[in-house]
């Protein structure tokens, strides 16, 4: 590995180039996915892709129906017939976990899409316009940021007797957009005064073009990060609500499996095959999503990655990164590049 003293490119520089000269579809797609081209993001996307596949192929993969009751095989530990054992009714835990993936993926993505669309509309508009319109949109965002989410979701979800998953996703999305909108507004405000946006405005380009072609490419990393963050929040929200019992327990997702396991005393009787798999699946998908976000973070702020790499490279040359002599000697060359 060579010492990493490459110029630390800010994402803006790259995107300015794409919005200017490199307008071919391929070039644009390439730059849109640049933030995912690192080991952390790719690992995260792979794990996420695995769960999406499981959700799509649930009918093929699941060995049993998740609701198939078998009174002869209750509370069975894992065996050749039931890889992850059975529940109090003799239902196959593996099949329940596989079918449960659907609810998680559908609600997670629906809620995140809804939240991200609202965040983009409110955030970018609030950042681009000035005066009272910007202020009032910002106030709206802050109100949603301040009103406590989970209590509100519990109260709203309990308004429905039998809320369908779409309603749950909508509630999670409507309460989860504010953070993304706030971050996007701040970034749009700083973009508005950059030269290339000013130039586009001076050229008389329509607002739609300025926002779509000049600004959005520069906001992609933030949008992606807030999307991933909302998926995580929605999945945690869904499983928590299912566990609490606000969501009817007859729809299968990992949270409802845990609700049943807890109600039937699986945690007290050490029936680990019942309560470990759903929890580990939630944790795995959570780790996958945070890996994707770590990757995006390092793309937006290259220091986060290069600091560690630089320190490791120095160590190989026998230098201590925190030693005053090293610091002074390397800072000059480093700063010329930055």
């Amino acid at each position: 590995m060579t010492t990493d003293l490459r110029p630390e490119q800010a994402p803006e520089v790259r995107s300015e180039r794409t919005s200017g000269r490199e307008t071919s579809l391929r070039g644009r797609l390439g730059s849109a996915f640049a933030m995912f081209r690192n080991r952390k993001s790719i690992t995260g996307l792979t794990i996420l892709g695995f769960f999406v596949l499981v959700a799509i192929l649930a009918d093929v993969l699941a060995p049993y129906s998740p609701t198939k009751v078998d009174n002869t095989a209750r509370f069975q530990p894992p065996s050749a017939e039931h890889w992850l054992g059975t529940t109090h009714l003799g239902e196959d835990v593996l099949s329940q976990v596989i079918y449960g993936t659907r609810g998680i993926i559908v609600v997670g993505f629906l809620a995140a899409i809804l939240a991200t669309v609202i965040a983009i509309v409110v955030g970018v508009v609030a950042g681009y316009v000035r005066g009272w319109r910007s202020e009032s949109l910002s106030a709206l965002t802050n109100v949603f940021l301040v009103i406590p989410g989970l209590p509100l979701i519990i109260i709203v979800a309990s308004m429905f007797d039998d809320p369908p998953l779409v309603v749950i996703a909508a509630v999670l999305g409507l309460t989860g957009w504010a953070w993304g909108a706030r971050v996007l507004r701040a970034q749009t405000m700083s973009l508005r005064n950059r030269d290339f946006v000013q130039a586009a405005r001076a050229n008389g380009e329509p607002l739609r073009r300025i926002i779509g072609n000049e600004m959005l490419p520069n906001l992609m990393a933030l949008i992606a990060a807030s999307f991933v963050g909302t998926v995580t929040a929605a999945i945690i929200g869904l499983t928590t609500l299912s566990y609490i019992g606000v969501i009817p327990v007859n729809t299968y997702n990992w949270g409802t499996i845990l609700n049943w396991a807890s109600a039937q005393g699986a945690f007290r009787q050490n029936q680990w095959w019942w309560f470990m798999p759903p929890g580990l699946c939630i944790a795995a998908i959570g780790v996958a999503l945070s890996l994707i976000n770590f990757g995006i973070d390092e793309y937006v702020n290259p220091r986060l990655r290069s600091a560690g790499e630089r320190a490791r490279a120095m160590k190989k040359q026998g230098l201590d990164v925190n030693d005053p002599v090293t610091v002074v000697r390397t800072t000059t060359s480093h700063q010329e590049n930055a």
Binding site: V183, A186, T232, A233, N293, D297
Partner: peptide, 13 residues
């Protein structure tokens, strides 16, 4: 949930 930390530009906000 892991939320993105506010960027430095947030100083304006």
């Amino acid at each position: 949930a892991v939320q993105p930390r506010p960027p430095v530009e947030d100083a304006i906000e």
